[in-house]
């Protein structure tokens, strides 16, 4: 499902309100775009570039942590899209990280959260209630990210009806 990443780039561009150029795969099958006459290659690099043209300033540490997450997502998301069993394991890893951390890179919303939300959207959407129950922290995080301004402009927020969520927090929408 490689088109997924092209679409994600467009969504991130929209979120940061910056042009994304013509996103496509080059001959080596690497995601590429051209911005300001400069060719930029690779999902993580493009996303970080969009954030910085959107005015986001990252510390060295935030930058590295974001890069790591973006690479991780780019590496496994295609397999996760194709294989539901693999997808659950993939989500559980992320869930683990969100148990002790409010956001992917720590204590504040970052470009990694925004990108991950768009990347994971179709995968989370497919989960059954029981599956969602097994990734409570990821559900908590998803609910939070999609409530942030400008995140849900091109698609509706996910309905995260886990048993726990629906008992403790009756859906607002």
């Amino acid at each position: 499902m490689s088109a997924c990443n092209v679409q994600v780039i467009k969504q991130i561009g929209k979120y940061y309100n910056v042009p994304v150029g013509t996103v496509c795969y080059n001959t080596d099958k690497v995601l590429t775009t051209v911005l300001n006459k400069q060719s930029i290659e690779g999902f993580a690099t493009i996303v970080l570039k969009l954030a910085s043209s959107g005015g986001v300033k990252l510390s060295q540490e935030q930058m590295l942590l974001s890069y790591q997450w973006l690479e991780h997502l780019a590496m496994y998301v295609n397999q996760a899209s194709a294989n539901p069993a693999f997808a659950l394991g993939f989500l559980k890893d992320i869930n683990k990280a969100l148990e002790k951390n409010t956001y992917l890179t720590g204590q504040s919303l970052s470009v990694a959260d925004i990108a991950a939300y768009y990347v994971l959207y179709p995968i989370v959407k497919r989960l059954s209630v029981t599956e969602l129950e097994s990734v409570m922290h990821l559900s908590r995080w998803t609910r939070h990210i999609q409530a942030q301004p400008r995140v849900c402009t091109s698609q509706p927020p996910l309905t995260l009806n886990t048993l726990n969520l629906s008992i403790l927090a009756p859906a607002v929408h």
Binding site: H137, S139, W141, H144, Q148
Partner: peptide
């Protein structure tokens, strides 16, 4: 703890 398992902050998403 139960409240914050499913919520990022105490009230609403901020």
């Amino acid at each position: 703890d139960g409240h914050l398992l499913t919520r990022t902050f105490l009230v609403g998403e901020r």
